[in-house]
Design a protein around this nucleic acid. Structure first.
Lengths: 137, 137
DNA sequence: TTGGTTGCAAACAATTTGCATAAAT
DNA sequence: ATTTATGCAAATTGTTTGCAACCAA
């Protein structure tokens, strides 16, 4: 309980009950199925008896994103998914059949990205590599 | 003019006037500022005196996408951008300041992507690599 | 106390859909 | 003549916002 308060404080956010509950929920779920949509999270919270408004979930997620606590991804579909940001940047593979998500990192790709950006006179601010994949037969 | 009809026919689409006009517009604009939003296209068409409904633009773009004539991209923002698909797949760099878009291809990255997917038992169906960049000082 | 925060409902933006009309085969 | 496509307006979806009540500092 204190840990979350701490995290929120140092992010410059008041440790309100909704924020703490959302952070806890993200942590408790993050192990298995990360990448929750706002509505997913809202549903989980309600199943857990927490009566938090959907708009609050959105607001808090946005604040967490700005604070660097969570990362927001826009895959092909119309809606955003959120995950606790674990320090290390990574990319994603999304199975078109099962919607399964695999995370990965590859230093070779990352180095090339920087080289390419530099060759055009740019610095990389953020990146998003999403591979749409299908289980091979 | 016949060329567009041809392209539509072989895509299994009737060569209707709105479809032909949209295809022509995409071609005529594609040289400079590709990556149009549906509304962009709609506006361009109206400026050119074509009275085509926005919903038709959306419908036709979706059909073109399914036919492989155009590619749809979902960058971070909420809306989709479309571009004539030029056979060769490529990735994008988007300047966070100017919204400028640079396209690029890199064989090294592509090879690694396939290796990584394969290592997880997947085949790549599609990919989207977007680098958010900023002009270096 | 006091200013940030919440919940609700209404507002929004991007995109889709129902349906009567119009156009292509 | 039949079938598919269009335009318009209304519906949906995902997300944001205004505001009075509320809670943390």
């Amino acid at each position: 309980m204190k840990a979350e308060n701490q995290a929120l404080q140092s992010a410059g956010l008041r440790a309100t009950l909704p924020r703490v509950r959302i952070l806890q929920m993200l942590e408790s779920i993050d192990e298995e199925r990360h990448h929750l949509t706002a509505e997913d999270l809202y549903r989980h919270l309600h199943q857990a008896g927490e009566d938090i408004g959907l708009s609050t979930v959105y607001r808090v997620l946005t604040q967490f994103e700005q604070a660097g606590l969570v990362a927001r991804h826009n895959f092909d579909n119309g809606h955003s998914v959120f995950e606790l940001s674990s320090g290390e940047e990574h990319d994603h593979m999304v199975c078109v059949d099962t919607n399964e998500i695999v995370e990965f990192r590859d230093p070779v790709i990352e180095r090339r990205q920087h080289e390419i950006a530099a060759a055009h006179g740019y610095d990389i601010v953020g990146r998003a590599l999403v591979l749409r994949v299908r289980k091979r037969p």
